[in-house]
Design a protein around this nucleic acid. Structure first.
Lengths: 193, 193, 193, 193
DNA sequence: CATGAATGAGGGTTCATTCAT
DNA sequence: AATGAATGAACCCTCATTCAT
């Protein structure tokens, strides 16, 4: 029987509140630049309380990443591509990725910043990238096999698309018409006929 | 008469030594994660000496950026494009950018990391990106006008190329054949004829 | 309900303990000559704790001054002069001032020392002196108006009395018979009849 | 035979320049608040040079005090009192003391500040005060014996005059008419006839 | 005589973490 | 569950002093 008790619910809420608060500050000031006191003050609690929910500041960081990790979300998207035209599928995937980046902008900033220098996090970064790359590459291979795309190295295409999406996000470009143009260019190339 | 004295030479050498040491540590551990003591120990000098050359840790960071800034280097490259085929020019530019990123990998890691969270540095970042984008965009416009490339939005192409170069660098891809494939894809597209 | 809780009481006690300890050391060695470690060690606490109670060493100094400031104490004295003979009132005021200087000798030493060189404190010094001078001057004016004292510039008399009290304190003269002689001289002069 | 050489003169000038520079900074910022670099920069020389002239910062402080000590100057004044009226002599002495305080204001500030907390300097302070007090007291005793002043404790009068002079100086009062009023009050008292 | 690079001890301050309440 | 007083290790930086040039 079951379900969470009232108390467990409150506990979850408090935990989420602390995660939200910490995520905002981490994104704005960096992990090193944010003190436990900052987080406690912003959340309106005492410093000590954070140690009831998280073993350390490091643990708090990992808890944020674990909770807001968007990968389960992403993997579904590519699975349902079916037989629609590649241009349409790639555009939809780009748009969705853009959307996720916007929604998770704070997490993204935290992760990029920390991944750059922390050796133990670089490992995780490679995994993440491999997943996204894998999803895309497998899709492209299927479309080449189906004859919709000309034979080429799909890994390169995947990296170009991901790079263009990231570059657009980082430089604040609106999704429209940028992503459509990217996909068009990818499909047709820029050489004069 | 003239020329740097022995003492001035030594001063420059010492200064460069400290900049090199700091750059390596900043890149490896982040600016926050590197202490003045770390740098002094690695350079084999006393902590106090750093303050003989740089007013503060912050000042030291800016001194690294100022010294290793690759912009003058980059702008020359696109100016000498002349009338060679676009495929060749874009590939050469990509290769050179890759090379610069490799040479300045440490600076690049430092800068990206710090730019992500420091507001005063974001400004600088936008400038940098605008320069690179501008160089590329102007070149593409010229080739469209010359009829070598089909009419399209060159800003998108520029971002795609930059994104692909950055993504390749960040994920440790060797330049060959990656960059050639990127440029080919950009020129011809991936759609089946 | 109400009143301070146990914890609030302890907080006040601890705060006062730290102020007492710091005051003693500041008086003995000067503010610059006293380190936070000195204070913490003397109080038997960790250095960090001082920053739980005071934002900085400077703040600690001001907190001592604020707590031990004798002005409310002093202003009452002159208000209750009533119609007693001036000789009696001036003597009583001198004695009381002497007493305060003795009680607050540490604060006094600190304040004089810091006021001499810190521009921002000189301001405060002028205010303090103006208050004491004002109290005395107003009293003397009233007694001149009442015909008890001969017409003269009361500001000068006030400064002479204050000067004599300070000089006596600084050179360690016992209050008796010094202050009585000072007041007598002030009342009668030293010229032969 | 004879006279300081050119080089010795230059040496003296340089020494005096350094003493002047240091005195100004010590007075303005306190001894602790002044760095050797401050002094060297203000004098336009290298830090190391100060150690050619003075063994340490402490030594530099004592050298200032030794050079600018005003006592020889002061003792002559009271010796030549002769038989002039006491009012005139006391006023002249007060004026001269005021003048000396003004001329030596910097030294005075330094000395007071350091004397307050340095045990080894308190000793010197007592000597100084004893000298001034002695000169004045002996003069007053002579005038009492001569019948010009009524019998009283001259030590008290001396302290009152010194106190009034110091208080006036510290609070920035102009010499005129303050000192004349002080001497008048001292001579005649403030009681109504 | 003069320079200023170099040292190294120590200062004020910060902050993640602990623990009695 | 929640508080916040208390700790102590480090951090950035300062500065009197030394010494090779």
């Amino acid at each position: 029987m079951g379900g969470p008790t009232r108390r467990e619910l409150q506990k979850q809420e408090r935990r989420n509140q602390l995660l939200d608060t910490a995520r905002g500050l981490f994104a704005a000031q960096g992990v090193e630049g944010t003190t436990i006191k900052d987080i406690a003050d912003a959340a309106g609690v005492a410093q000590g309380l954070l140690y009831h929910y998280f073993a350390s500041k490091e643990d708090l960081l990992w808890a944020i990443i674990a909770r807001d990790n968007p990968f389960t979300d992403m993997s579904e998207i590519m699975s349902n591509a079916g037989d629609r035209p590649a241009r349409e599928v790639l555009l939809q995937a780009s748009l969705r990725a853009y959307q996720i980046l916007a929604e998770r902008a704070e997490l993204f900033r935290i992760v990029v910043r920390e991944f750059i220098t922390r050796p133990e996090m670089r490992q995780g970064f490679k995994m993440i990238q491999a997943i996204a790359l894998g999803l895309l590459t497998r899709y492209l291979e299927a479309r080449i096999a189906a004859g919709e795309l000309r034979p080429h190295n799909p890994d390169v295409t995947a990296r170009m698309l991901i790079g263009a999406v990231l570059a657009g996000h980082l430089t604040g470009r609106p999704a429209e018409p940028y992503l459509a143009e990217v996909v068009d260019t990818l499909m047709e190339g820029i050489a004069a006929a």
